[in-house]
């Protein structure tokens, strides 16, 4: 069954139709990519799916349940976790603390627990610290745990955002242009990381400009252009789709 089902999602900003009746289904455990030229409506689509804002019309089903128009935190609580195109780190916190925030969804206890610090609280904090260490190692930031997040170079900030999202144990991970601003080497490392995340059983939906990355990791691709879905298929099918070539790859092919 599809973990994410996007049904006829439309988003209008005044007269501008940013998303025009977009539909697709993401099977559980798959690695799905959404591509398209600048301004095609990719981030708008992510914002609608993740509850950053509600779509004008259409439905979004997550795990068979209608989550259209729910608050962002409620959608995240169900295990649909996103990252942002412009990294949104908690700058006044260390790298490790950033990841620790990610455990919010899977942990419990507020003021009372923090004041009393019973055995349960300490066990949970210990668990969070251990898992944080292993997640930072997983994305290759194991030796940066105690530095302030905003002192990391840009590429590592992106990896930190991914580690933080993983701490929330997503069932579905939405990655919004994770390779933006990365060099070739960093992009290759990122591709590897995304594949390993997917291998852990996390369903991944990826928005990406970097065609090399998408073709390398995605099992299935949807192509947007001017707010419409113009094609969907495997990387091989997308590569040879005339509509896609006309809209997108024609100008990008030499870079890819």
């Amino acid at each position: 069954m599809a973990l994410l089902n996007v049904q006829g999602v439309t988003k209008r900003f005044g007269g501008l139709v940013a998303n025009d009746s977009i539909s697709f289904a993401v099977p559980e455990g798959s690695l799905f990519a959404v591509i398209g030229p600048n301004g095609a409506g990719k981030t708008t689509l992510f914002n609608a799916i993740s509850g950053f804002f509600a779509p004008t019309s259409g439905r979004i089903l997550f795990d068979g349940q209608d989550v259209t128009g729910l608050a962002q935190a409620d959608i995240a609580q169900r295990g649909l976790i996103r990252t942002y195109q412009l990294v949104q780190l908690f700058k006044d916190m260390t790298v490790a603390e950033n990841v620790q925030v990610g455990f919010h969804r899977m942990t419990s206890g507020n003021v009372g627990a923090a004041l009393l610090r019973g055995a349960g609280f300490r066990r949970q904090e210990e668990h969070i610290r251990e898992e944080t260490r292993s997640l930072l190692t997983f994305v290759g930031l194991g030796n940066r745990a105690d530095v302030m997040a905003d002192t990391l170079p840009y590429g590592q900030q992106r990896l930190l955002e991914v580690a933080r999202a993983l701490a929330a144990q997503p069932r579905l991970l939405l990655l919004d242009e994770p390779a933006a601003g990365l060099n070739t080497q960093e992009t290759d490392a990122l591709a590897d990381t995304i594949l390993r995340i997917n291998a852990r059983g996390v369903t991944v939906v990826l928005i990406e400009h970097d065609m090399g990355l998408v073709m390398k990791v995605a099992q299935r691709i949807a192509v947007l252009d001017f707010g419409r879905k113009i094609a969907e298929g495997t990387p091989a099918e997308i590569r040879s789709d005339p509509a896609v070539i006309a809209a997108y790859l024609g100008t990008e092919a030499e870079h890819a």
Binding site: I81, Q88, A113, L115
Partner: peptide, 28 residues
Amino acid sequence: RLRNSRFGRALRAIAGSEAAAAALGINV
């Protein structure tokens, strides 16, 4: 005590980025 806990981290996350805090399931 409150600062160094799940509660305190949620507060400080909001100071850092409300969008990111909400995306991690924190009821801002």
